[in-house]
Design a protein around this nucleic acid. Structure first.
Lengths: 154, 154
DNA sequence: GTCTAATAGATTGACATCTAACGGTTAGAT
DNA sequence: ATCTAACCGTTAGATGTCAATCTATTAGAC
């Protein structure tokens, strides 16, 4: 009966994420960065001497994509790569002073953006949203879902 | 004090959307389509004789991107394009029988996916999430936001 | 009737991302 | 010692997206 009468939640999710992502990227670009550059910076910064596989996983992209960004960022003087002496397969990624400076600038932007994004939303609402997002992830990630019918869905 | 202690909601949103989008696309590919193909199909199907600008807007992509997909879909025999006799600038996009068949197949997949995605979520929860997503969009879209402090945010 | 402005798509060039295939490195087995 | 398998990062090719620009068509002004 309800079928697709209302917008599928997945579509709503995708469109919202697209809009928010775009806005965030615009804000980053205005400060001399970009969303992927910020992702890599914060990921490198939050661990010391991370190697690329870890970084890629933490950013949520494939290793090949990270290689791509690191090439550009290295060319821009934001990061350095050197071999791990203990295991020469690994590349250790570090921020240059220039990378540090950009990190600090973008961090302020990210914090301001987050504040703007939460405007008018109570903490409880944020938590509720977070909980639902987690369940959406679980619903597509886990295969077998024996869910208790909530009496109101579909 | 709280700063970035918890994951920014925007990051949570982006990651969830990425996971869900990927899962949806996989499901579509398994049935011989893809997410963008499905988007175009449902958009063409839901209006009769839409022209490209309308279609692009409804799908939420740029005209250039739509042109790209229509080229591929036309080559695959899923849609036809012909000039509007009344206004020869416009292209009228229609589904071929093959396109209709794919639409039906993908529609079943999309409905099943939506059901899976909502598993275990009460209607009220879905609505709550939808409301929050709408406010996130408003928070990045609208510039001046005179919000009433909810007493608990930040 | 021609000019100009506006409109509809198409094209081009640039990213970010993915998968698949490859080359160098290490560890373990024999 | 050498062989094999696993691991790490890179390269190559494809897809999806966008902004900026171009071409064709239409409508309005004169």
């Amino acid at each position: 009966m309800f079928e697709l009468a209302s917008t599928p939640i997945g579509l709503d999710l995708a469109q919202t994420a697209k809009i928010v992502r775009r806005a965030f990227d615009d804000a980053m670009v205005a400060k001399g960065g970009s969303l992927p550059v910020w992702s890599v910076l914060i990921s490198v910064k939050s661990r010391q001497f991370g190697h690329q596989r870890e970084l890629a996983e933490s950013v949520g992209i494939q290793g090949a994509t990270l290689t791509h960004h690191l090439n550009a960022m290295e060319a821009d003087g934001l990061v350095t790569r050197r071999r791990d002496p203990a295991n020469r397969r690994k590349h250790l990624v570090e921020l240059t002073p220039s990378g540090e400076a950009l990190f600090l600038r973008l961090r302020d932007t990210a914090i301001a953006f987050d504040r703007q994004l939460r405007a008018g939303l109570a903490l409880g609402e944020i938590d509720a949203a977070r909980s639902i997002l987690a369940r959406l992830r679980a619903n597509v990630g886990g295969e077998s879902l024996e869910v208790q019918e909530s009496g109101a869905d579909q």
